[in-house]
Nucleic acid binder design. Structure first.
Lengths: 354, 354
DNA sequence: CTGAAAGCGCTTACAG
DNA sequence: CTGAAAGCGCTTACAG
């Protein structure tokens, strides 16, 4: 492009052919060097010359051309139903970390709580991803998927049969929470669930209800409500339900996520319900904000970063053709008790202190 | 993994050639139909036959092959320095919405507060993105970039010369905040900044300091500290700085983000500093949690979703070859006053209402 | 309106 | 150790 007529304004893409010409070798050799596959296949001085040419020209292997030739790209797609949950940001960070720089992380975002539909999935797959990570899926989505690419599931309890999974032991955390509330003397409780039909939420609820029942806490079906993972939505639902609950003697409400719990906290303040004296509140996630909410929110801590890391690690093994060994990974969860459930200073039972 | 010798287990990819064979046309015709470029170029009944074959076979245009032939992919890359900020989740949602389904959103994630380096950028560009969105960049990164693809900047005050930008009027919000604190009678203040060398933070700080000074609030250089956007880090920095500030008579601290402010709130509670009586605290972002923090956090509201939407819209125009018209877009910000700044130490205003 | 053919940039057997 | 060539799946002038 030294002095032609039609000067194309875009800085010409550097191709392997250009590098080859400069180094005095074939494009095949350039490819070998650029991909580090020189072992016993390229002469030392050719390696050096190609490297030099690559550096001088600023050559980068074209991702598209390479993907087409190899039949697979370097893209890892992460499908998740709720990017707006801060919990998720940590999961992403963990994935990114364990995946390393040779894979590009493509985040598939949909409406909050929704999963991509069959069409979207096909479009995603047409990118020939090197691997797939699916967070908090439901069975329906996985059936649509039928991915030919390596696939790892995150936070997908009960769906281990579809693919290797990294799970959180949310059931254990849920039980700890129920036990904690029982120990504090609560007898009547409510549950604010997430509307998404995601398995992890079903497990949280079931484990909580079971443990609560076994410890003498009543949570009648009418005291289980569902909202989207949104502070405002949770607040509104709670506002609507609270009068009935109060009449029924409810003194504790467990929420499927901290975000739901924030909504309850917010509405409780508006309604003048004292936390925790009149009502104990708790959630799942242990988001950073739960330490500064008013009052501090008792929450089941979920190791988000570790979840992402572990999943990325597993996927990487799969993409490198290694096997995983049977049995999924399950990460521990634990209850973090804060002011929102702490028995009033005056006595064990909230009622007793009145 | 049934048990055959070399049974290729992956369900064979459906290609344009297969569709062509089935419909009794050439692959060129299939391409035309699949891309909706039939106007006056394909006979009606051929269109129908191809469509039928596409449906029967479940054909999807291969993204890689298509990208290589076209010279550009359907990927839009979103580069952002801090995915862990919940603010950002809303930006993404806005982008996704305005971009529509024909573009795939690829999120480039790096260490919190860091930008991809030259190498990373090249790797990203080798994906031949249809467009680029860069959130809260610094000048250095943009100079590295030199993108041949359409590019739109988000929240990049002062960098409009690099590319079309959608900005937030953070300076106005910062001034409102300074005015609010001055009105409440504060004379000595501090500022907790973000360490990232991002322009938006420089603007926030400069506007705040200027307005504060003009209204008789002193913020000496020693009272400006910086931390990463992290509750714990902000808390630690505040803990370290507070004794000095207190001695100097500081009664208000403005923070570059709500996340920083949560850290201050948290540490203040630990240290027994009463908010807002002893210390007023405020941030930028107006995250959902700011309504439920203890106390509610005064914050400069930033329209995150609108920011993403507008940027996606602009980029889309660019990618479709339309022009943008001069002058970037700037979105309003506004101060939301809550409990964390509502009383004045000296008793000027709110104190009177006690 | 239609199809044969070139070409996008790369990788990988293959023959030397 | 090396390079010519086929091929990845598609799009787009081009000739008919």
């Amino acid at each position: 492009m030294d002095s032609g007529e039609q000067v194309p304004q875009r800085p010409r893409r550097v191709t392997a052919a250009m590098v080859a010409a400069r180094a005095g070798v074939s494009v095949a050799t350039v490819s070998l060097v650029a991909n580090g596959k020189t072992a016993g296949r390229v002469a030392k001085d050719n390696i050096a010359r190609v490297r030099e040419a690559i550096a001088e020209l600023g050559y980068v292997v074209d991702g598209i051309g390479s993907s087409l030739a190899k039949g697979v790209s370097s893209i890892v797609i992460l499908v998740a139903p709720d990017i707006s949950n801060p919990f998720f940001a940590k999961v992403i960070a963990g994935v990114r970390e364990s995946l390393g720089p040779q894979y590009q992380l493509l985040l598939s975002v949909t409406e909050a709580g929704e999963f991509p539909e069959a069409d979207d999935v096909r479009r995603l797959m047409s990118l020939r991803p090197a691997g797939l990570l699916v967070d908090a899926p439901n069975a329906g989505f996985l059936e649509d998927l039928a991915s030919p690419s390596p696939l790892v599931l995150l936070d997908a309890p009960g769906l281990e049969s579809y693919a290797p999974s990294v799970n959180l032991d949310v059931a254990s955390g849920a039980r700890q929470l129920a036990a904690h509330l029982a120990d504090a003397g609560h007898k009547e409780a409510a549950y604010v669930d997430s509307v998404t039909g995601t398995e992890t939420f079903a497990v949280r609820r079931a484990a909580f209800l079971e443990e609560a029942a076994s410890r003498g806490i009543t949570v009648s079906p009418k005291r289980i409500i569902s909202t989207t993972i949104d502070v405002g939505a949770a607040a509104a639902s709670f506002a609507w339900a609270w009068p009935d609950w109060q009449r029924a003697g409810v003194t504790a409400v467990a929420c499927a996520t901290d975000t739901h719990a924030y909504g309850v906290l917010q509405e409780a303040r508006v309604a003048g319900v004292r936390i925790p004296e009149e009502l104990a509140v708790a959630g799942f996630d242990d988001l950073p904000y739960s330490a500064t909410s008013n009052p501090g929110l008792t929450s089941v801590h979920l190791p988000a970063t570790a979840l992402g890391q572990k999943a990325g690690e597993q996927l990487r093994r799969l993409m490198e053709g290694k096997s995983l060994g049977p049995g999924g990974v399950t990460l521990e969860t634990s209850l973090v008790v804060r002011g929102s459930t702490k028995a009033s200073p005056a006595g064990h039972l909230p009622a007793a202190s009145h």
